[in-house]
C-alpha cells in the first residue's frame, strides 16, 4: 500500500486516497473488536453451515482483518513521519529559493555596476543593495515559507525555535561581511573578498548545522550538510592560490552547494515517505 499511497502524496492537493482513510478508521474499530474484544460473529453463509465452513470463514475474516490492520499501521506510520517530510520539503525549498535569490541578486548587481556607472560602484549603494537582498530573503524564508509548517508544531511551543546564539552568530557574520566588503573593495583588494566570504560561510553553515541538529530527524540531512561545510572550507585554499579564479570558485561552490543541498533535502523528504515502516 505504502508505495501507491506515498506516490499520490507528493506535492498534490488530491493528496490522500480517501477510501483507504475511511476504510482505515472503520477498520480500526473492527480490528479492536476482533483482536481485543469478544470475537465478531461470522455468518456461516447457507443454512447447511458446518463447523468446517465456520472455521474457513473465520480464517478468511481473520486474514482480512490482519491485512487491514497492517494497512492501518502503514497509515499511522505515515502520520508519524509526515511532519518531518513537510519540514524537509520546506527547508529544501528555502535553500533552492535562497540559491535562486542570490543568483538573481548577483545578476542585478552586475547590471547595476555595468549600467549605473559611478553610482553602481558607490559603497553605500552596494550596502543598500545587500541589505535589501537580505530583507527579501528573510521575508521569503521566514514569513512566507516557514509558516507552511505551523500546523505540525506542538501547541504552546514557541513559533520561532532559533536560539539566541544562532541569531547572534548570523548578525555578527552579516556585519563582518559588510565591513569586509567595504574595506576590501575600498582598498582595491577585491580578490580577497571571496576567501573572507568563505570563512563567514563556513562559520554560518556550521551554526545552521548545529541548529538543525537540535531538531528531530536531522540525521538524514547531516551528511549533505557536512559535505557542504567541508567544500566551503576547502575552497579557501584554491581561492588563495589562484586569486583571479576566486569569484568563479565562490559562485561554483556556494551557489552549487546551496542548490545541491536544497535538492538533496527535497529528495530525502520524498525518500522518507517511501522508506519501509520501522519494525
Amino acid at each position: 500500500m505504502s508505495d501507491t499511497l506515498c506516490t499520490s502524496l507528493l506535492f498534490t492537493s488530491d493528496i490522500f486516497p480517501i477510501n483507504m482513510l475511511c476504510f482505515c478508521s472503520s477498520a480500526y474499530s473492527l480490528i479492536c473488536r476482533r483482536f481485543i474484544g469478544p470475537p465478531v460473529c461470522v455468518s456461516a453463509g447457507d443454512g447447511m453451515s458446518t463447523s468446517e465452513h465456520k472455521s474457513d470463514d473465520t480464517a478468511d475474516s481473520t486474514e482480512d482483518l490482519r491485512k487491514q490492520a497492517k494497512e492501518l499501521l502503514a497509515l499511522t506510520e505515515l502520520v508519524r513521519k509526515y511532519p518531518s517530510v513537510v519540514s524537509q520539503r520546506v527547508e529544501g525549498l528555502v535553500y533552492v529559493l535562497i540559491g535562486g535569490g542570490i543568483s538573481l541578486a548577483t545578476l542585478m548587481f552586475a547590471f547595476i555596476i555595468q549600467f549605473a556607472g559611478p553610482l553602481g560602484t558607490n559603497m553605500i549603494a552596494i550596502l543598500a543593495f545587500m541589505i535589501f537582498t537580505w530583507l527579501i530573503a528573510y521575508a521569503v524564508g521566514f514569513k512566507l515559507i516557514k509558516p507552511l509548517t505551523q500546523s505540525y508544531m506542538k501547541p504552546g511551543a514557541p513559533e520561532d525555535e532559533l536560539s539566541l546564539a544562532f541569531k547572534l552568530t548570523w548578525i555578527v557574520l552579516m556585519a563582518f561581511i559588510a565591513v569586509m566588503a567595504m574595506y576590501l573593495f575600498g582598498t582595491g583588494q577585491a580578490s580577497l573578498f571571496p576567501p573572507c566570504m568563505q570563512v563567514a560561510m563556513t562559520i554560518g553553515q556550521t551554526a545552521n548545522y548545529l541548529q538543525s541538529g537540535k531538531q528531530k530527524n536531522a540525521s538524514a540531512l547531516a551528511k549533505g550538510h557536512l559535505t557542504f561545510i567541508a567544500l566551503i572550507a576547502v575552497s579557501i585554499i584554491p581561492m588563495l592560490l589562484f586569486p583571479p579564479l576566486s569569484y568563479a570558485i565562490l559562485i561554483l561552490v556556494d551557489m552549487g552547494g546551496i542548490y545541491g543541498l536544497g535538492i538533496y533535502m527535497l529528495i530525502s523528504a520524498e525518500k522518507l515517505l517511501l522508506e519501509p515502516p520501522r519494525a
Binding site: I15, F16, L21, S25, L75, S151
Partner: peptide, 11 residues
Amino acid sequence: LSILVYLYFTQ
C-alpha cells in the same frame, strides 16, 4: 477521524 486525518495531510 477521517476528516482530521485528511486535514492533517492537506492542512
